[in-house]
Simulated scan of single mutants.
Amino acid sequence: MLGGYPPFSSRRNIHFFFSLFLLASLYCLVLLGVGGRLNFSSGRSSVSWNPGAIFFSSPVGNSSQVSERYKLDNVLRDAAMKDGTVILTTLNEAWAAPGSVIDLFLESFRIGDGTHRLLKHLVIVALDMKAFSRCISAHTHCFLLTTEGVDFSSEAYFMTSDYLKMMWRRIDFLRSVLEMGYNFVFTDADVMWFRDPFTQFFVDTDLQIACDNFLGDSEDIDNKPNGGFNYVRSNNRSIQFYKFWYSSRETFPGYHDQDVFNFIKYNPFITEIDLKIRFLDTQYFGGLCEPSKDLNRVCTMHVNCCFGLKSKLHDLRIILQDWKFYLSMPTTLKRSLIMSWSVPQNCSLDSLSQYGVPLNSTQ
């Protein structure tokens, strides 16, 4: 023993037990409610999160430092592009487990053509505490969005009460992001990003939205939109529209946000506020409802028109395999060969037809 200090191994044990004691103490404080509660309120919604729970995954910093880091305005500012655009997705516990949807989503960014750099602009909005903990262990920009009295952690099956609450919570949150002055690309986590979509977005358009069925004209109001992927610029027109969209849930009770969008896109209010809407071509922004037919053009691929997490996961993995095979091909062969997808598989045609999608649209 030198200088009265214990051997290195003993010191390491002391540090370990001290750290364990500290973590246990913090855990008790959280259980007793000492961690505190902060709220971000805007309009009709209250976006809240409990900073005390962040201790479990935060390696350094006191509670105030950790709380500041995960405030919505700080998260958005850190993630924003120069023009104030952020990429947003939502995540709950069911989609956050290792090997589940969020891992495949992030992998698509990493292996896509020019998409890896976009990860620094991605904000994952967690809808429950476990999803938030998973986010901060896997990604840089995370925000916890909770709804008092509602548990969004489980898989929300299509058109159930929890599903509808989750979809409308999302619309109200996106409205608050617009009011804070940020443009956003919203993307479901079951959308695979394979090319930079900004190269295919229209200029001077307030709202651009993907389609389940695209009719060939981006300005045709009869296109069938899909709310799982859209690009919205922050201005008075888009903010008014999101308020109108959210309030329309009361006019059309029992419908989800996508159906209500389909109803209100014909409303004279859209013309009154001069909202410019464009619909995105499925050859660049495809999905299982209507797959993009050429991997030389595809930007995103959405596992829409599919019931159940297991089916989605299976077909998502197939999509990633298809993309990796495409990447492995010689450049000259890529250009001369029109290659499409090996899906749907578990997302069967029967499932697609339940969405009212013509079966020949998946061919």
Rank of each mutant, 00 (worst) to 15 (best):
H302P: 09
E290Y: 01
V303G: 00
L313C: 09
P291G: 06
T271A: 15
H314M: 05
T300A: 10
G308H: 09
K312E: 07
L280S: 04
F307T: 06
E290M: 13
Y284L: 07
M301N: 12
D315L: 09
L275E: 07
T271P: 00
C299G: 04
N296F: 12
C299R: 10
K276V: 15
C306A: 11
N267K: 08
V303P: 00
T271G: 14
H314Y: 14
L280M: 15
V298A: 08
R297S: 06
K265Q: 13
E272A: 13
K265W: 04
L309H: 12
C289S: 15
C289F: 04
V303I: 15
G308R: 10
N296S: 13
C299M: 09
T300Q: 05
D281C: 07
F285W: 06
G287R: 02
H314K: 12
Y266F: 15
C306I: 06
C305K: 02
D274T: 11
T300F: 03
Y284W: 14
V298D: 01
N304I: 07
K265A: 08
I277D: 03
G308Q: 09
S292N: 12
T300E: 07
I264K: 04
Y266W: 13
S292T: 11
T271F: 10
F269K: 12
V298E: 04
I273T: 06
C305Y: 01
I273A: 05
E290P: 00
L309G: 02
G308E: 08
I264Y: 02
V303H: 02
S311W: 03
G286K: 01
M301S: 14
S292H: 04
F279W: 12
K312P: 02
S311Y: 09
D274V: 06
Y266L: 09
C305V: 03
R278S: 10
S292G: 15
N304G: 08
C305T: 01
N267A: 13
L309W: 05
E272P: 00
C299K: 11
E272H: 14
T271W: 08
C305W: 01
C305H: 03
K276G: 03
D315Q: 09
S311E: 14
F307E: 12
V303E: 05
H302S: 08
K293N: 07
I264V: 15
K265M: 10
L295K: 03
F307D: 12
G286F: 00
T300K: 02
P268A: 08
K312D: 05
R297M: 11
D281V: 08
L280F: 12
D315G: 05
I264D: 04
C289R: 00
T271V: 11
I264W: 01
G308L: 09
D294T: 10
G287S: 14
C299S: 15
T300W: 01
D281K: 07
E272Y: 14
M301E: 08
L295S: 02
Y266A: 12
I270G: 03
L280K: 02
L295H: 04
S311V: 03
Q283Y: 08
G286V: 01
N296M: 10
V303N: 06
H314N: 15
S292C: 13
E290S: 13
Y266M: 10
S292Q: 06
I277N: 05
L295D: 01
K276A: 11
K265E: 05
G286M: 03
F307M: 13
D274Y: 08
G286E: 01
L275F: 10
V298G: 00
Q283N: 14
K265P: 01
